[in-house]
């Protein structure tokens, strides 16, 4: 059964693609409506919830203090964890983090880290002794497709509204975590032979490879990832990159609209 359903679905998706249609009536580059809420979790120092169609994710940001790496004595650190827990879909099994969840956490982490949006030096408490460690946890509650974009959007929104709990750690007054930019991820999946933006659950089940693109404020690339089996041509990448520029700008505007 596991193999049969995707085969029938693939056929249906190919027919839809031939007419430039999608299962939920969207056009090829149209995303689902994105609902974003920030600062919603009582015990997290930064938090956000994103709903995109049947996908629901929560992201929490926590802080603690740590000893800096000896080669970077004044630099704070960032860690991103993702858990694809069995709550999110019947396909997820309990157990240690799966390769899929590790990939999710690392791809979201790279986009944020490599954009340079966080000033790691501003997270120094005592040089060589103590720095802030920022921990982002991606928590998928319902996987209805494209959890990458949902998690990346929630992660940057949670960071941009986070407060460093200095008082609780007895190292001064609480302060807003400073972010210099807003890296945003856009993901594309090959469905019925051509790329679409923001694949839903059926499109992921019956689709092929996916490409994740993180763009910074200036439209520069900060992370790329091709996941799953499949290949693509440079022309195809150019096409989705152009679309990513438009979609990322829209998402960035949404994220900024939630900031006080």
């Amino acid at each position: 059964m596991v193999q049969l359903v995707p085969q029938l679905l693939r056929q249906q998706l190919a027919e839809l693609a031939a007419n430039d249609e999608r299962t939920d009536g969207r056009s090829r580059w149209q995303g689902r409506d994105v609902e974003l809420e920030v600062d919603i979790l009582y015990n997290a120092e930064g938090s956000a919830k994103v709903v995109m169609g049947d996908t629901i994710v929560y992201v929490g940001v926590k802080f603690d203090t740590a000893t800096p790496y000896s080669d970077r004595p004044t630099s704070g650190s960032l860690m991103t964890g993702a858990e694809l827990r069995p709550v999110a879909h019947r396909k997820y099994e309990p157990g240690p983090p799966s390769p899929a969840s590790i990939e999710l956490g690392r791809v979201v982490d790279r986009g944020i880290r490599e954009s340079g949006c966080m000033d790691m030096e501003s997270l120094c408490i005592v040089p060589g002794e103590s720095v802030w460690r920022v921990m982002i946890d991606l928590h998928v509650l319902s996987d209805g497709g494209n959890i990458f974009d949902a998690c990346a959007t929630a992660a940057i929104a949670a960071l941009r509204t986070a407060t460093v709990p200095a008082k609780r750690f007895d190292v001064g007054e609480d302060f807003k975590l400073e972010l210099k930019s807003t890296p945003v991820m856009c993901s594309f999946t090959r469905v019925g032979g051509r790329y679409v933006y923001d694949a839903n659950e059926a499109e992921e089940l019956g689709g092929d490879e996916r490409v994740h693109i993180t763009l910074g404020d200036e439209g520069h690339l900060h992370s790329l990832q091709k996941g799953l089996k499949g290949v693509l041509m440079p022309e195809e990448f150019a096409e989705i990159l152009a679309q990513a520029g438009v979609r990322c700008a829209e998402l960035r505007e949404l994220i900024h609209s939630k900031e006080a």
Binding site: L41, N43, A44, G60, K62, D64, G81, M135, D137, R168
Partner: peptide, 10 residues
Amino acid sequence: NMAPFSTSDR
């Protein structure tokens, strides 16, 4: 399961 961010200390 408690989410990592559900309590005061992660």
